[in-house]
Computed example of a mutant assay.
Amino acid sequence: MELRQLQYFMKVAQKEHVTQAAEELHVAQSAVSRQIHQLEQELGVDLFIQKGRNLQLTPVGHLFCKRVESLMKELDQAVAEVHEFLNPEHGEIRIAFPHSLGIHLIPTVVSEFKKEYPNVKFRFKQGMFPSLIRDVISSEVDLAFISPFPEKHDQVKGDIVLTEELFAILPPNHTLAEEESIHLNQLKDDKFILFSEGYSLRPIVWQACSEAGFSPEIAFEGEETDTIRGLVAAGMGVSLLPEMAFFQSNPLQPSRVRISEPKVTRTIGLIHRSDDKLPLVAQAFRNFLLQYFDLHRGDCE
């Protein structure tokens, strides 16, 4: 069975007429008839029946047509993906990232990249650390920003693009709200608002509190920086958030105070599959990102 046979079959099924199908295919009518006959012989069934001057699909022809239609769509998509792979100025980049990077970082770098590659499309996906790893391994995405950076992983590899400081965020009326910097153990008696289990910032905050000599008492748990920031601003507790979490316009804001001891940071990396060659368009974006963060490293750290 040849691809040409399937293409001719689908065109005849669409036009219900060999002559019209041949005209659209820019081939002789006899060539279309011959390919359809050979296909029917190979399958051992009649795919069409004559109805006046037209051809109509038989019941088994209808069944075969549905399968071939799906197959041809998949083939067209595969061809499109190959073209996208080979052309770094077009195509689609599939990238995943944690929610906290979607507030400022992702819009910024994508906007900058689009200045050079205006025809490139993006497909975005947000997730937590485990799902980001899974999406890269399963090829659901080409690239993923992730925090913390997985230093050792058999199936993904990448680069640390920046290290970001975490700040204490306090209710505006907190006794330490006006301080330039504090030791984290000064918050040992406060109730904490943390990210839920599975979010990468939670163990970072927990480890920092442990280094400061206490275990945080959790008052609330949340899944978005906006929620945590809002609860702190409303006086429900304290928390630690990275600097990127403060790019917003909500008028209800907590106070932000630098932590001098212990130093609390998170690494942000850009990863991809270890055993896979990136499409050229995704590789172009990766190269752009590495250059971008290298150029702006002083601004980000």
Rank of each mutant, 00 (worst) to 15 (best):
I204S: 09
K125I: 09
G230W: 05
R202F: 08
G158H: 05
F293A: 02
D159W: 14
F9S: 04
H183K: 01
H62Q: 15
A245M: 02
F129P: 00
I182D: 11
L290W: 01
V156T: 08
T163H: 10
E40V: 05
L86P: 00
S138G: 03
N119M: 07
V141I: 11
S70E: 15
K157S: 12
V45R: 11
E178I: 11
T19Y: 15
L75R: 00
I271V: 09
C300Q: 11
E301G: 14
G230L: 12
S139R: 07
V205P: 06
P150K: 00
I218C: 07
L176P: 06
L270I: 04
I106R: 02
A168G: 05
Q41L: 13
E197I: 12
M128E: 09
Q7T: 13
G235F: 03
K11T: 06
A212F: 14
I182A: 08
S100V: 11
L162C: 13
S147W: 01
R286F: 14
N54V: 02
L176Q: 12
V264E: 11
G222R: 03
E211A: 14
E16F: 06
R297P: 01
G44N: 12
E92V: 10
I204M: 08
E42R: 09
V264I: 12
Y199M: 03
V257G: 02
D154T: 10
V18A: 09
E151D: 01
G102W: 08
S249L: 14
N287A: 13
F122L: 04
C300G: 03
I106P: 07
G230S: 13
K277F: 09
Q41N: 08
L201S: 04
E84D: 13
E74T: 00
I49T: 14
G269N: 07
V32F: 11
P203V: 07
N287L: 10
I182Y: 08
L71D: 05
L63G: 12
H296D: 01
P118W: 08
C209Y: 12
L194C: 08
Y199G: 03
E23I: 06
L25P: 01
R258I: 05
M244N: 14
N119F: 12
